[in-house]
């Protein structure tokens, strides 16, 4: 139960942060991406604020052997740069510039009831399904020999930490 309350509060704070920062307005997102037009640097301030706070708190949190309400931390441990990562991020960026939405603001904006958001989110979920259906095609390309990721040179992770495939 505690884990669910924490998750709910986290989602709520995330949505309020998106709303306050202006990121639920696609026009503000595309104005940031419009380097060659009427540029609006607000999104850079959002990233700066989020990264400042999370970098600091992350350092404190990872000193703990485990989270407060769960057995272990679920953090990605992959360090290799593969074509999937770059191609996926590149495709995402095209959709982001085209629609003015990334997943967080899109889901939050569903509450507005606007048709454009409903259409976008339905297509986004369809895109995720499409990936799942075709996943074998993209994974097969990974069968080529790959460098084994070396452990980080910095402080080793506590043994209890897991390594999921994605975020």
């Amino acid at each position: 139960m505690n884990t669910l309350i924490a998750s709910f509060v986290s989602g709520l704070v995330f949505a309020l942060g998106l709303g306050l920062s202006g990121m639920t307005q696609p026009a503000k997102v595309t104005a940031f991406l419009d380097f060659f037009g009427d540029w609006d640097p607000s999104l850079a301030c959002v990233m700066l604020g989020a990264i400042l706070v999370h970098t600091f708190l992350y350092q404190l949190i990872r000193r703990r052997p485990s989270p407060l309400f769960a057995a272990a931390f679920s953090l990605p441990t992959r360090t290799d740069i593969d074509p999937r990562l770059v191609a996926g991020a590149a495709l995402f960026g095209i959709g982001w510039g085209l629609g003015g939405f990334c997943p967080g603001p899109a889901v939050t904006s569903l509450a507005s009831g606007q048709a454009s958001v409903v259409i976008f989110v339905a297509a986004m979920v369809a895109g995720m399904y499409l990936y799942r259906l075709t996943e074998g095609l993209w994974r097969r390309q990974e069968s080529a020999p790959r460098q084994v990721a070396l452990p980080p040179l910095t402080a080793p992770s506590p043994p209890a930490w897991q390594s999921p495939q994605d975020f």
């Binding site: 505690n2 884990t3 924490a6 998750s7 509060v9 986290s10 989602g11 704070v13 995330f14 309020l16 942060g17 998106l18 709303g19 306050l20 920062s21 202006g22 990121m23 503000k28 104005a31 009427d38 609006d40 640097p41 607000s42 999104l43 301030c45 959002v46 990233m47 700066l48 604020g49 989020a50 990264i51 400042l52 706070v53 999370h54 708190l57 992350y58 949190i61 703990r64 485990s66 989270p67 407060l68 309400f69 769960a70 057995a71 272990a72 931390f73 679920s74 953090l75 990605p76 975020f167």
Partner: peptide
């Protein structure tokens, strides 16, 4: 249309949210 203060504070809330989820549930936001 630049909103530096609101966007910075909103961003800090997002960073706080990600930290809460990691601290309590061990998950990535």
């Amino acid at each position: 249309h630049f909103t530096p203060i609101a966007s910075l504070i909103g961003g800090m809330l997002i960073g706080l949210s990600a930290s809460l989820l990691l601290l309590f549930d061990g998950k990535i936001a």
